[in-house]
Amino acid sequence: MLDRVKKHFKSQKPKKTPAQRARQQAALLANVAEEQRGKLNADILDAATELGMVENIALLANSTENNFTGVNMYCDDEAVFVQAPLNPRATDIAACCGRAMEVRGDAFLARVRDNEDEFERLDFTLREVSSSAPWVKEAAAQNERKRNAESAQAAFARMQAARPENGAAASTAPPARVTELTPAEAAKEEGNAAIKRGDVAQAEAHYSNALRLDAGLTSAHNNRALARLRLGRWADAEADCDAVLAREPRNVKALLRRGAAWEKLGRADEALQDFRRAAELEPQNLEARHAIGGVLQE
């Protein structure tokens, strides 16, 4: 989808003038650390301004509260520099979602489900592009909570800095940490990337490699179960889920995936038992509810 959107933006906008290119490069440099700016020559800056990137704005962020289902707005990140016309409808929709911004040029909306292990684009109808749509109200509430939390954090930081014992140079920010991946975790991440680009067979191979490197990597078992379900390898998917649930009996993803495998294997009663257990653990999980309804209708 992003490739199609990028192609659309490229076909719609005129060639940038030297003045527009200069403004865009100045904006790029403003986001680069001062000590790094000297390393960026004219060729690098020219290449950067020809990338034609798509700006992804999360109007409704995916989270546990919404079953990891969000709504994103995709805009041309060069729209401001090429002086694209104001998009009133997209600007108003963003405002209704609690994201005050000026959207210029064409904009696209899409619903996605992304829980970091799996990524899926979901249906999103034109009728839902309305200020009264449920997702818009949910986004407005979510963004309001986020602003309130940020305000509270800022107030706390000011209070801490004002304490005499802290001194003028006191900082409340925790030290940055860099976490290095093990070889098994790196292989699992390669599998996640393959899943997102739709290469399920390659993903299954990466997850298997991760488990060869670390047989106790539960998340790799869970993700391989997903890949094997998509490959139609029901019994293998069940085995992976069993391995997860032996260590983590409350793992909802494993329960849902084992239930899906059992359903395909004709074991509806056991599938229903797993789906109901998942719903008990996460009452807001829409996938669990739909799965229960699907089994009961059979």
Rank of each mutant, 00 (worst) to 15 (best):
89 R>P: 00
99 R>C: 05
104 R>F: 01
119 F>A: 08
90 A>L: 12
124 F>V: 02
90 A>N: 11
84 A>K: 02
119 F>Q: 08
100 A>G: 03
81 F>D: 06
81 F>T: 06
103 V>C: 05
87 N>V: 11
109 L>K: 07
110 A>T: 10
79 A>K: 02
94 A>T: 07
116 E>W: 09
96 C>G: 11
88 P>W: 09
77 D>T: 00
121 R>H: 13
74 Y>G: 01
118 E>Q: 10
109 L>P: 09
100 A>E: 12
73 M>S: 10
119 F>M: 10
93 I>F: 02
97 C>T: 09
93 I>G: 03
90 A>Q: 10
74 Y>E: 00
107 A>G: 10
107 A>Q: 11
93 I>Q: 01
97 C>W: 12
85 P>Y: 03
78 E>N: 07
84 A>M: 07
115 N>P: 04
79 A>N: 03
82 V>K: 09
102 E>G: 03
124 F>W: 04
98 G>A: 05
81 F>R: 09
122 L>Q: 03
118 E>D: 08
77 D>Y: 01
80 V>M: 13
96 C>H: 14
100 A>N: 06
89 R>A: 14
99 R>A: 04
112 V>T: 13
82 V>R: 15
86 L>I: 09
83 Q>D: 15
81 F>M: 06
116 E>P: 00
99 R>L: 11
85 P>D: 04
116 E>D: 09
88 P>H: 07
85 P>L: 03
112 V>Y: 15
105 G>M: 05
120 E>I: 07
115 N>F: 10
77 D>G: 00
